[in-house]
Amino acid sequence: MPIITVVSRDGTGRAVEMDTGTTLMEGLRDHGFDEVLAMCGGCCSCATCHVYVEPASTATEEEDALLALSAHRRDNSRLSCQITLAPDHDGLRVEIPPED
């Protein structure tokens, strides 16, 4: 299972092991990162699960449109509900953006 480093808004980081087959949003939620609001429950209808990821990956077209709702969008922005975790996500670094 991939080990993912999550950096919260206060700058503190924590490495956690997440299940494959679930989404990054679910992994963040299940590990108590409550800064991720994920209001729509992961159906790509809001942008409240926005994260920065390293290495950067390409957002889908729908995600790209939703990310425009955030004032804190960067090149490595993703919606965490649209990333399904796989073994090769091991080492991913995730940062929670400032609150919109």
Binding site: T22, E26, D30, G32, D34
Partner: peptide
């Protein structure tokens, strides 16, 4: 389990 707003352990931890 996938539609829980938070897992059980969360509420206890908080």
């Amino acid at each position: 389990e996938r539609i829980l707003i938070r897992p059980a352990a969360f509420w206890q931890a908080r």
